[in-house]
Design a protein around this nucleic acid. Structure first.
Length: 576
DNA sequence: GCCGTTTTCGGCCCGACTGTTTTCAGTCG
């Protein structure tokens, strides 16, 4: 058994123990051990020693033995026995917002509610209202939570499916009877959430391609098997659809199945004005095909520049392509450094030095470290007394290494009244300040907007973090007037982050274009808590591209020297 | 269950928020 699986099981044990209302410190011990293991570089190869495991802080004798048992035998008796005592439906219920282990256990013990369906029914029957510590409001909130869960079912985070999508597409691409092929649909458009994976392939032998596709080892289930169109379901639950066409039809089919529906409709409407019929099989004038050898040929026929798939959302791209005013979209290689990184000073699991080494290896020039602030005590936020030690470490590292620059930052919580949670004196010590909401999500839209604008007006604020607080497929954005926020950012020379965590991708791409028009700069930030998170900037770049952003709109495409001046100027201008 | 030590026990992060209460329980981050 490999390290990832062991970590997963340790986490699962902690969840099961929670549902059994075990000693909270024992539960935390399992959580901590999983986390320590994630952070450590211990080799699970051959000859894993218990002594090596117990050297890791957070792993003691007992858990070390459990890990050893898992690695050596592939299973753990304690875990297997534990699983038998907790119905799987209880674990599933943890996904419902407002439902935690205590409520789940109480309802199981007293109402024999053992899964989400039974819970929903019990709520509808009003069986929760009279239980101690429950009531009308609690019951309503549970029902609402179940609704949210249902709403998001069958939708997947781009980041969670892209690797699998590419693996399957590569197999298709390399299949001997396939000429040209591509991922299409929302995956090709780099949408943050997708419902399925679309593939378009050209072939002289569709039958062979359909057989090959439905016979893929990744196929958990065959949903449909037709002459030119088939569909399979993967283990993750997501469907993959394939469409095969003749090679001369490939450009039209690729365009058609890339979409979006809105983009296609607008394209067809424009075509119809010129008496052209447009569908997945071609462009037709008076019934005869207008030949295009690739997608660019189609756009060219309409005197348009080729539109990158990310822009095909009918957000003005067709007009811009006609006017030759499409943006030159930002690319991954344009990124020169990263901000919004957490390290072991707060809740990250990497040291500042590790982070910088990693980024330097990626070819980047600088890092902006930003720990949580004192209000975020759950995340080990820095108390006033911690700050000098943190800043001194960065100074030392900067002295030691002159080829890589570290900027000193803090992710300062925006309090309920809109103030940041440090004094001006402390805030002035940093190179940059990221203002962020981490609590008090339930204000009215006006209160929340006013609160954030007050933080934007703070002379020390450099940029606003994750402006809507959404967690994709899990938590709706808080109520906030994002237009007013962007306007306030423009007026106060405050930048906005595009948080690149695949769970956030916040600022939303639909708003990036507006921010750009207002002259607001957008930082592409990983919000990293581990080395792996640092790679998430790629998802941010995808979304920035969807939001029409160019290199010039993103400050962290500047060189180390340039960004140093950029930050200094901003600070001096605002705090003078 | 882990850790550290005044070493075989005692402490382990906690504040905001909601909804339930009338001082507290549970969730969230």
């Amino acid at each position: 058994m490999d390290k990832e699986e062991v970590i997963k099981i340790l986490k699962e044990i902690s969840v099961l123990l929670e549902l059994k209302d075990e000693n909270p410190f024992k539960i935390r011990a399992y959580q901590n051990s999983a986390r320590s293991l994630e952070a450590s570089d211990i080799d699970f190869g051959r000859d894993l020693k218990i002594d090596d495991l117990t050297k890791i802080k957070g792993i003691g004798q007992h858990i070390a033995e459990s890990i050893k048992e898992l690695v050596d035998t592939g299973s753990l008796k304690f875990y297997e026995d534990l699983k038998k005592t907790v119905p799987p439906g209880l674990v599933e219920m943890l996904a419902i917002p407002t439902m935690g282990p205590k409520k789940i256990k109480y309802l199981f013990d007293n109402l024999q509610v053992s899964n989400t369906g039974e819970l929903e029914y019990a709520c509808i029957e009003n069986r929760l209202v009279d239980l101690p510590n429950f009531g009308k409001k609690t019951q309503e909130n549970i029902l609402k939570g179940i609704e949210v869960l249902k709403k998001y079912k069958g939708r997947y985070l781009f980041a969670n499916i892209i690797e699998e999508a590419e693996v399957i597409h590569n197999k298709i691409q390399n299949f001997q009877y396939v000429n040209r092929s591509s991922l299409a649909g929302s995956v090709r458009r780099k949408k943050e959430i997708v419902k399925d994976i679309d593939i378009v392939a050209s072939t002289d032998n569709p039958d062979k391609v359909m057989d090959f596709f439905t016979g893929l080892s990744e196929a958990e289930d065959i949903i449909a098997r037709g002459d030119t169109k088939s569909s399979i379901r993967l283990k993750s639950g997501i469907n993959v659809d394939i469409r095969s066409v003749d090679d001369f039809q490939y450009p039209y089919a690729l365009h058609h199945f890339t979409g979006s529906k809105e983009h296609n409709t607008a394209m067809r409407t424009a075509a119809k004005k010129d008496s052209i019929k447009m569908n997945e099989y071609g462009l037709f004038k008076n019934g005869s095909l207008i030949k295009c050898s690739d997608e660019a040929g189609i756009f060219n026929f309409f005197s348009m520049d080729w539109i990158p798939p990310e822009l095909r959302e009918n957000y003005g791209e067709i007009e811009a392509a006609k006017n030759k005013t499409l943006p030159k979209l930002i690319e991954e290689k344009d990124i020169k450094g990263m901000f919004h990184i957490h390290t072991t000073h707060s809740d990250g699991n990497i040291s500042i030095e590790q982070t910088c080494n990693y980024l330097q290896k990626m070819g980047l020039q600088y890092a902006g470290i930003s720990e949580h602030s004192r209000t975020a005590s759950y995340a080990g936020g820095l108390k006033n007394d911690d700050i000098n030690r943190y800043l001194e470490e960065i100074d030392k590292l900067n002295q030691k290494c002159t080829s890589f620059k570290i900027f000193k930052g803090i992710e300062s919580d925006i309090l309920l009244d809109g103030n940041l949670d440090y004094s001006d004196y402390i805030l002035s010590k940093f190179d940059f300040i990221i203002a962020a909401i981490h609590s008090g999500f339930n204000l009215s839209k006006e209160q929340m907007t006013d609160r954030i604008i007050k933080a934007i007006e703070n002379k020390f604020t450099t940029m606003l973090a994750h402006p809507t607080g959404r967690l994709l497929l899990a938590r709706d954005p808080y109520r906030v007037d994002i237009i007013r926020i962007i306007n306030a950012a423009a007026e106060n020379d405050v930048d906005i982050e595009l948080n690149s965590s695949p769970f956030r991708l916040d600022l939303d791409w639909r708003m990036c274009k507006y921010a750009k028009e207002k002259g607001v700069k957008i930082f592409i930030n990983p919000d990293a808590h581990s080395l792996k998170n640092l790679d998430d900037y790629k998802f941010g770049v995808n979304i920035a591209r969807k939001g029409w952003l160019e290199k010039e709109d993103v400050p962290n495409t500047l060189s180390a020297k340039e960004i140093e001046i950029y930050l200094k100027n901003k600070k001096n201008k605002k705090t003078k």
